[in-house]
Design a protein around this nucleic acid. Structure first.
Length: 322
DNA sequence: AAAAACAACAACCGCGGTCTG
DNA sequence: ACAGACCGCGGTTGTTGTTTT
């Protein structure tokens, strides 16, 4: 019944391998192959367990292992495969000759994962994060709006209707999102794709939902030309009266988002650039969800946006986040 | 120059599937 | 059919080197 009991692995060496141990292991495997890993240590004259030997060989000593920095191509492959396979490191490693699953895993954990997080992308789902920090810009906008309303009351002015206030906050959030999108995706393909989405939305809304100045500031000149300045702005079929969006030329768009409330009172509200809003959001409450829906449903030949990995590996973008 | 903080990576641990007697 | 060893995988930890304070 069953196999003989496992050998007693007491007193076996652990920790870093010495050059002598490496030499013994390499010599033995090159002459005899690894065979049974369990039997190998004794045959090779090593005071290690078979598991440790296997790990040392597969992750470090194997002659076909490629060492050194990962190339851009390899990075992109890892990102793309990870978005499909998840943490299946061995499966990913099969597509990267000379790289071990352990090496890829370490590279992911120390480099790629951090970069995705910095960009506001969930490294597990490869989708924009929907947690508290990702939603921070919207929360800040709402908080600022509340302050603005209170300020207006102090000034003895007509209070902005609540619905409009919410719309304005949403609008500000949209603006922050677009500016971030433009700033992290400077290549024309990405911006073009983004503006195509927005165009589709604006087609549904005869009054146009987006500020031309906003689009100009985010690289969407084509749409901006179609929309006269100072035209009433709507946000998802809701008119936003008395509110104009503008980008202040004296202030970098990457540093702040400006919302002006009414013609007489001009209050600016700042958003932190560091709190990067998501490019799209799958949540039902988020307006960006409409973009995704439109992309999939309204068009018979959906346009493919660049993958996150393509955006991530953009040269300028990499510099921005380093 | 020293200490602390951070980054990179090698190695270990534990689990689950497969194999073997 | 079953118990238990083997193997491979993914997660985690420990160590070492580098940078910052």
């Amino acid at each position: 019944m069953g196999r003989p009991p496992c050998c007693v692995e007491k007193g076996l060496k652990k920790g870093p391998w010495t050059p002598e141990e490496d030499h013994k292991l390499m010599n033995y495997i090159q002459k005899n192959g690894h065979g049974s890993w369990r039997a190998l240590p004794e045959l090779a004259g090593l005071n290690r367990c078979g598991k440790s030997c296997r790990l040392r060989w597969t992750n470090y000593l194997r002659p076909d292992i490629k060492r050194g920095k990962f190339s851009k191509d390899e990075e992109q492959t890892i990102l793309q495969l990870h978005s499909i396979l998840g943490n299946k490191w061995s499966a990913i490693a099969k597509n990267l000759p000379g790289r071990t699953d352990n090496e890829i895993k370490n590279f992911w954990n120390t480099h790629l994962r951090k970069k995705l997080i910095q960009m506001g992308i969930d490294p597990m789902t490869h989708r924009p994060r929907t947690d508290f920090f990702a939603a921070l810009p919207q929360l800040i906008a709402l908080a600022n709006l509340h302050q603005l309303i209170e300020q207006q009351q102090w000034d003895g002015q007509t209070t902005m209707p609540q619905t409009e206030a919410v719309q304005a906050a949403n609008h500000q959030y949209m603006q922050a999102m677009l500016q971030s999108a433009a700033s992290i995706a400077p290549n024309p393909t990405t911006v073009s794709s983004l503006t195509t989405d927005l165009e589709q939305i604006s087609l549904l809304n005869p009054q146009h939902m987006l500020s031309p100045t906003l689009l100009e500031s985010t690289g969407g000149e084509d749409i901006a030309r179609q929309v006269p300045h100072n035209q009433p702005i709507t946000f998802f079929d809701q008119p936003v009266s008395n509110i104009n969006l503008s980008s202040d030329n004296n202030v970098s768009s990457s540093e702040q988002c400006l919302v002006e409330g009414g013609s007489s009172s001009r209050k600016s509200m700042l958003l932190s650039e560091n709190s990067l809003p998501p490019l799209t959001d799958m949540s039902a409450s988020n307006p960006c969800n409409a973009i995704s829906t439109l992309k999939c449903g309204a068009s018979s030949t959906p346009t493919l946006s660049p993958s996150w990995s393509e955006i991530l590996l953009d040269e300028e973008l990499m510099r921005e986040f380093e």
